[in-house]
Design a protein around this nucleic acid. Structure first.
Length: 422
DNA sequence: TCTGGGGTCCTAGGACCC
DNA sequence: TCTGGGGTCCTAGGACCC
């Protein structure tokens, strides 16, 4: 049996965790750069706000209605997420972490078991021990478990596929809300008279294969109670992306160099934290498509002679690719680094002609770098170009720096931010 | 002033091979 | 001038997800 568990309005719940004054008050969490609303609690939804609302457009409304706004604090959310997952593990050894706030639990098929009782217990424990409300959907397939999870929010927290009127439920469930049916597929299906999850369940498999590809076939099977989407055991990730929109327009190469250096450091940190080395690097550079002015976007990719996790080499390559694609005279909005072709970083193929002394020196340098940054905080030591061209004389505003005007403290991961009991 | 960021999976089509 | 059949591998781009 599969449980799909997720945190209700997860980011907003995390923000409320250490702010009892926000309990049952409307809270909205903004994306990086304070651009759009990415999470909001029920109270905020009731006021008519939606995920994806552009902050600067709804700001006045938000202020008038007394909504508390938070910049996203991923360090906090990741920590709460880890706590939830370790709790799930106490209930079930097989947990697939699907996203920061969603997990699938694969429970053995016991006979005569009331799974919803287990689910209520899980929900109650999460609320008591972690302080975050979760909802649980119970079904024989992932797609149905996700569907039940959505219903669970109406049923007070738990929904068991075995205990509801299934056909009736599917007939009232819009096809576009089914997991795996996005914008494009919804458009196609509606044109062909498939409007509900029930219609999709009855859609012939050969048509599904032809029109919705193998992905759609799996969805149809799952709606019919046949598990077709496997549990994912991912050993390593495929790629690392690090990109950010600038809060202001950026025109100069040195500012791009500066920001790209920061993103490269962050990307390499993730690479090293996961014990990986990368074979390819891609740099993207683009203007703002919403702008009226001239648009430019370009990318460049190169392969390293062998997989690497050595920051200086990766940074030199990143900056050289940036210089290749940079053109004067544009108002840039975003620069992005993408690392791919992952290999195991600790167990790389040795080069017959490799200078092992040099290799050891590099390894020691990087170990030292990691150590300092892990111990004293990110950015304690960094590469030369990072954070330099920072727009001095500009009232301290760095045009490429991310906006996070409403950031909450790192309650659980920074000693000085831990709440005090007085 | 101001419109997120980070991922995975699948498919089509080209290059190349025998 | 005619111009097979079967296959693999790689990549770009689309679709979808949270």
């Amino acid at each position: 049996m599969i449980f799909h568990v997720d945190g209700n309005s997860f980011y907003a719940s995390c923000e409320r965790l250490f702010r009892p004054d926000l309990y049952s008050k409307p809270v909205a969490v903004l994306s990086n750069n304070d651009g759009v609303i990415v999470a909001l609690d029920q109270e905020c939804k009731n006021l008519g706000f939606k995920r994806g609302d552009v902050y600067f457009k709804v700001r006045k409304d938000i202020e008038e209605k007394g909504v508390t706004v938070c910049s996203s604090n991923y360090t906090l959310y990741a920590d709460i997420s880890a706590r939830l997952n370790s709790l799930y593990n106490q209930f079930c050894p097989e947990v697939e972490i699907y996203s920061i706030d969603e997990s699938f639990l694969f429970l053995p098929d016991w006979h005569n078991t009331d799974y919803s009782e287990i689910a209520w217990n899980l929900r109650e424990t999460a609320g008591r021990e972690i302080g975050v409300p979760v909802a649980v959907g119970i079904a024989p397939t992932k797609t149905l478990a996700k569907l039940c999870n959505k219903l669970a929010k109406k049923y007070g927290g738990v929904c068991d596929w075995g205990k509801i009127d299934r056909d009736e439920t599917l007939k009232n469930y819009p096809v576009g809300d089914v997991w795996g049916i996005g914008y494009a597929k919804t458009g196609f299906l509606k044109k062909h008279g498939i409007n509900t999850a029930y219609d999709l369940k009855k859609y012939p498999l050969d048509k599904a294969k032809k029109n919705l590809s193998i992905v759609g076939v799996r969805t149809v099977q799952e709606l019919n109670g046949i598990a077709a989407i496997d549990q994912v055991h991912r050993e390593k990730r495929d790629l690392i992306i690090c990109s950010r929109s600038f809060s202001g327009g950026v025109y100069h190469l040195d500012e791009l160099v500066s920001s790209l250096t920061e993103y490269t450091q962050e990307a390499v940190k993730r690479l090293r934290d996961d014990g990986l080395a990368c074979s390819f690097i891609t740099i993207f550079l683009m203007t703002n498509p919403y702008d009226q002015g001239d648009q430019y976007s370009n990318q460049a990719t190169t392969q390293f002679p062998k997989p690497t996790a050595y920051l200086p080499d990766i940074l030199i390559m990143a900056l050289s690719l940036l210089r290749q694609i940079f053109r004067h005279g544009y108002k840039y909005r975003k620069v992005m680094i993408l690392l791919s072709g992952m290999e195991d970083g600790n167990n790389r193929q040795y080069d017959l002609f490799e200078d092992t002394t040099e290799k050891e020196k590099r390894e020691r340098l990087m170990q030292c770098y990691d150590l300092l940054n892990n111990k004293y905080g990110r950015g304690t030591i960094r590469m030369g170009a990072a954070g330099m061209a920072n727009g001095q004389g500009n009232a301290g505003i760095v045009p490429w720096k991310m906006k996070r005007d409403f950031l909450s403290p790192s309650y659980t991961t920074r000693l000085e931010d831990v709440p005090k009991v007085l």
